[in-house]
Computed example of a mutant assay.
Amino acid sequence: MPRAVAGPEIERLIQLLGRLPGLGPRSARRAALALVKKKDLLLVPLAGAMTVAAERIVTCSVCGNVDTSDPCIICTDPTRDGRTIVVVEDVSDLWALERAAAINARYHVLGGTLSPLDGVGPEDLTIDQLVARCAGGDVSEVIIAVNATVDGQATAHVITDRLAGLPVKVSRLAHGVPVGGELDYLDEGTLSAAIRARTPF
């Protein structure tokens, strides 16, 4: 077992940083060391920002986004197309679409995907809330923007089935060759999807 190289407070900081996605034990130690070495410049402001975030950040009761207000800034934006809802797996997907400025619609965060192996069923996601939003009559299109995984596609099928009785158009993101992509570097699944989803030229 490796020996502790610092006091318990710093070791605790390393352990907590190591729980973040993308940070392993080594990266967590480097990050902790950078924070400690620049205590006034990094550590103290970060601690303050995290305290404020813990106190003020809430989950939007309408779409599932995280913000400092409920409903969130996207749900209350009058310039958004309220008739279109983009369904995503997680808040990170919502943020990615917003960064791309690809669409000026509203969102719905599922909170994951169906995964029988992990015991995640439809009742564990916000599918019922999505159906309720669409049943209100104000929504004309639902764009399913989940990942092209087995679990993602299974989730998309369940959502499509649940919305079948409503006057809502259901569409999904196109799959295939990315912009700037070279065919030689793409996997077989992506190439197959691109062929199936071909469009007139």
Rank of each mutant, 00 (worst) to 15 (best):
A49E: 15
V62C: 08
L16Y: 02
I103L: 15
A194K: 10
C134A: 14
S92Q: 14
P167A: 09
G137T: 07
L46E: 01
V109P: 13
S27L: 07
A148M: 06
I144S: 03
A194P: 03
A101V: 09
G112M: 05
G24M: 04
T68M: 10
V120K: 05
D184G: 08
A197S: 15
L110R: 03
A31G: 07
K38G: 15
L43M: 15
Q153M: 10
A47H: 08
D118Q: 13
R30F: 02
G18E: 01
I14M: 13
P116K: 06
A34N: 09
R26D: 00
A6Q: 11
I57Y: 02
T113D: 06
R196W: 00
V58E: 00
A47V: 08
V139S: 10
P25A: 12
L191D: 00
P2D: 09
V142Q: 01
L183C: 10
C75F: 01
V52W: 04
A197W: 01
P167V: 05
K37Q: 15
P21T: 04
P116Y: 03
T190E: 01
C75K: 03
K39Q: 14
D124V: 03
R56H: 12
E188K: 11
A174N: 08
E182T: 11
I14Y: 03
S171F: 00
L186G: 07
K39Y: 12
G176P: 04
D128Y: 08
E123V: 02
A193E: 12
V146K: 01
V88S: 11
A28N: 05
G180T: 07
D118S: 15
Q129I: 03
G82V: 09
G180W: 09
P167L: 08
D118G: 06
R12Q: 13
V158C: 11
A145N: 09
D70M: 06
E188F: 01
D40M: 12
L166C: 08
T59V: 14
E182D: 15
A47D: 01
A174L: 08
L173I: 14
P2W: 01
L17A: 05
M1G: 15
P71T: 00
R198V: 09
